[in-house]
Computed example of a mutant assay.
Amino acid sequence: MQTVIETKSLCKTYGRQKAVDHVELHVPQGSVYGFIGPNGAGKSTTMKMLLGLIHPTEGQVFLLGQEMTERNRLALLRQTGSLIETPSGYLHLTGQENLQVVADLKGVPRRDIARVLEIVDLTADRNRKVGQYSLGMKQRLGIAMALLGSPKLLILDEPTNGLDPAGIQEMRDLIANMPAATGATVLISSHLLGEMEQMVGFVGILHQGQLLFEGSLRELQRHSRGSFSLRVLQPQKAAPVLKGRGIAPRLEKGALTLPPLRDEELAGLVRAVAESGAGVVGLTAHSKSLEEIFLSLTQTQEVK
């Protein structure tokens, strides 16, 4: 699989603190890649190194199949759009006027503005002053600025930060459809795993500057699978079924607690409980928190 971003032993040290510690990313072409970790994990530092905004202490960055150097940095960045931290914009100018400023700075024809406004659903608000925009609209305008010139790569740092639920949903839909709508590969960071699960296909988990996991979302979901709560009308009839499958029946808040199970095992167990006459009312899945996944991944590494 061809990669659009690749890093080799990427490090950034500030004094004695290693903010990024030998990170090796592999972002597949045409994907939405979720870069996940708690605040302070090193996500923004890594993204700034990818964009040449800060220099690595050690290691290499490859963008679009080429190692980034001082000689080719600007040429590579012309094919890259980014939104790092707070979106910038002139509040006294309209969305259209802000995009005209950015298009002129990038050397992009102004006719491209209509295309990016359509992608981020701001066409109807193009002539409103940005000072009147909601935070979600400002974020989408920032993405429109990044999309000017049809970049092959889009790097977004926590674009859902501070948004209300409606704004988060709009951003999820926008980003999930970005490769199909624009042809761009997307690298997006967040400290919220739940947000990422609804828009990405690949994931990298960063913790204390180290990459603990990289792979498909499906692979990660194996790590995040938690317990299940099975509500039944007659727990006493379900108990023998659970015992017969090596599961100790445990009743909590009116529901039987089941351990993490594969889909096939879970389906078979629920069917057997239903056939016992226990009266299945509902099943609830409990995913592990990001912190629990970190602990699980760390323990796995230690065992290896």
Rank of each mutant, 00 (worst) to 15 (best):
V4N: 06
T13L: 07
T13V: 11
G15W: 12
R16A: 15
A19C: 05
V20K: 00
V32A: 08
G34C: 02
G37K: 05
G40Y: 14
S44L: 03
M49K: 11
G52H: 15
L53E: 13
I54N: 09
T57N: 14
Q60H: 05
Q60P: 00
V61M: 05
R71A: 14
L74S: 14
L77P: 00
R78V: 12
T80L: 08
I84M: 11
S88M: 10
G95L: 00
Q96V: 07
R110L: 11
I113L: 02
D121C: 02
D125P: 00
R126P: 01
K129A: 07
G131D: 15
L135S: 09
M137G: 07
L141E: 09
G142H: 06
G142Q: 10
M145R: 02
A146E: 14
L147D: 00
P151D: 12
L153Q: 03
L154I: 15
L163T: 01
P165K: 00
G167W: 05
E170K: 03
D173T: 12
P179T: 12
P179M: 12
A181Y: 09
T185Q: 04
L187T: 11
H191N: 13
L193C: 02
G194W: 04
M196Y: 01
V200R: 04
F202L: 01
I205Y: 14
L211V: 02
L212I: 07
R218M: 08
R218I: 08
L230N: 09
K237E: 08
A238F: 04
A238K: 10
L242K: 05
G246D: 06
L251K: 04
L251E: 13
E252M: 00
E264T: 11
E265H: 09
E265T: 11
A267Q: 14
G268R: 06
G268Q: 07
L269M: 05
R271W: 11
V273L: 10
V273E: 13
E275D: 15
G277N: 08
G277Y: 10
G279L: 07
V281Y: 12
G282E: 14
A285Q: 07
E291W: 01
I293A: 10
I293S: 06
S296A: 05
T300Q: 14
Q301W: 06
